[in-house]
Simulated scan of single mutants.
Amino acid sequence: MPSVKLNNINMYYEVHGSGESLVLIQGLALDSSAWTNQISVFSQKYQVIVFDNRGVGQSDSPNIPYSTEMMADDTVELLKFLNIKNAHILGFSMGGAIAQQIALKYPEIVKSLILVTTAAKFPARARYLTKLWLKMLEEQVSTETRLQEICLWVFTDEFLADEARVTAAVKLGLNHPHPQPKHGFAGQIVALLEHNTRNKLNQISVPTLVLIGKDEIFIPLNFSEELAANIPNAELVISEKGGHNYWMEFPEIFNRAVMQFLAKVA
């Protein structure tokens, strides 16, 4: 699959399907390969664009602090390169912060906005944990242990009770063909820590869906409620199952909610 030079980085991307454009933006430390269960469904009706954010996957990882606005610029430059004039924008966690910046800075590009387990400003627990994860990486805690610890925060008790599923998830991370460099992880954490759109949410005018699983603990429900309350044309949907990564753990529930929303606004 191709990459393109933009904003002084080589950016890896994929395009699947045809129809109205739908952009999927990943969260901290995740790349486009994690969207497999979404691409297979969404691309049946939409042109799905996925890519690796700066700092992860097959995109470049410049050793500088990143910002969510910087990564929003990366995304829009990619859309311009692909000659996509407007699109539905879906962002998960850090990707949801990037999506907010796109809607604020480039409103003409955004048809609709889907914000998945994210926040206008990340909560103290999430901020503390991400700094702890970086410290664990700097202190050379094993990758296996770090992945196991992260699982505690992003999956449900149901998932964690299934030892085979946990082992498979950790193994997938251990065998990733493009492991994230430490400076890429650090750059993305800076972007997450400094993100704050609280005073601008009322400027987002496009139809917006705010999604969260009822068992989320990393970015609690009240942060999604804040988004839905302050974005004028937003609705909040709380999944009956799932935590932070509920789009991964319960893809059928997540995909159905997204497709139902897009059917209303597309």
Rank of each mutant, 00 (worst) to 15 (best):
V166N: 10
I39E: 06
I204A: 11
L209K: 12
K241W: 06
W153T: 05
V170C: 09
I204V: 08
R198T: 15
F254T: 00
E77C: 10
M11Y: 10
I238G: 05
N63W: 05
H88E: 03
Q203G: 07
I253P: 08
F254E: 05
I84P: 00
G57M: 03
P220I: 07
E139V: 02
T118W: 04
S18N: 05
I238L: 08
M1S: 14
R127V: 14
V4I: 15
V265P: 01
T68E: 05
A120E: 07
S18V: 01
N86C: 08
I231C: 13
Y13W: 12
E139H: 05
W153V: 06
N199H: 13
S224H: 01
Y106S: 02
V237E: 13
R127L: 06
T145N: 10
M94R: 12
I217Y: 00
T36G: 01
A229Q: 15
M71C: 05
M248V: 07
E240S: 09
S43Y: 07
Q58I: 01
T145K: 11
N175E: 15
N175G: 03
P207D: 15
M70T: 00
N7S: 13
Q140S: 14
S18H: 11
I89M: 11
P207K: 10
Q180W: 02
M1Y: 07
F51L: 09
S112W: 02
F42T: 01
K105G: 03
A263M: 15
P2H: 10
H176R: 09
I109D: 04
G243N: 10
V41H: 04
A229L: 11
S224N: 08
F81R: 12
E108W: 04
P179M: 15
A191T: 02
L132H: 14
K135L: 10
A97H: 00
W247T: 03
I217F: 01
V210I: 13
M259D: 12
L129R: 06
S21M: 11
E163T: 14
K135A: 10
V265K: 09
G17S: 07
P251L: 04
V190R: 02
H176M: 06
N255L: 09
G57Q: 00
V141K: 07
S224V: 09
N196M: 12
A119F: 06
L30T: 07
A87Q: 05
S18M: 03
L78R: 04
S18K: 13
Q38F: 00
N86G: 02
F218N: 04
E69F: 07
R198N: 14
F42W: 03
R127T: 12
G27A: 12
I39A: 03
S61I: 06
V166G: 09
A29K: 03
I49G: 02
V41D: 02
G17M: 04
F81S: 04
T143C: 03
V166T: 08
S3G: 12
L113K: 00
N86S: 15
E108N: 15
K45C: 05
K80W: 04
S205M: 15
A266G: 13
V56I: 14
A228V: 01
L262Y: 11
K214F: 13
N53S: 04
F92Y: 06
M248R: 07
G173Q: 00
A186K: 15
A34C: 08
S224E: 04
H88C: 03
V23Q: 01
T68R: 10
H88F: 01
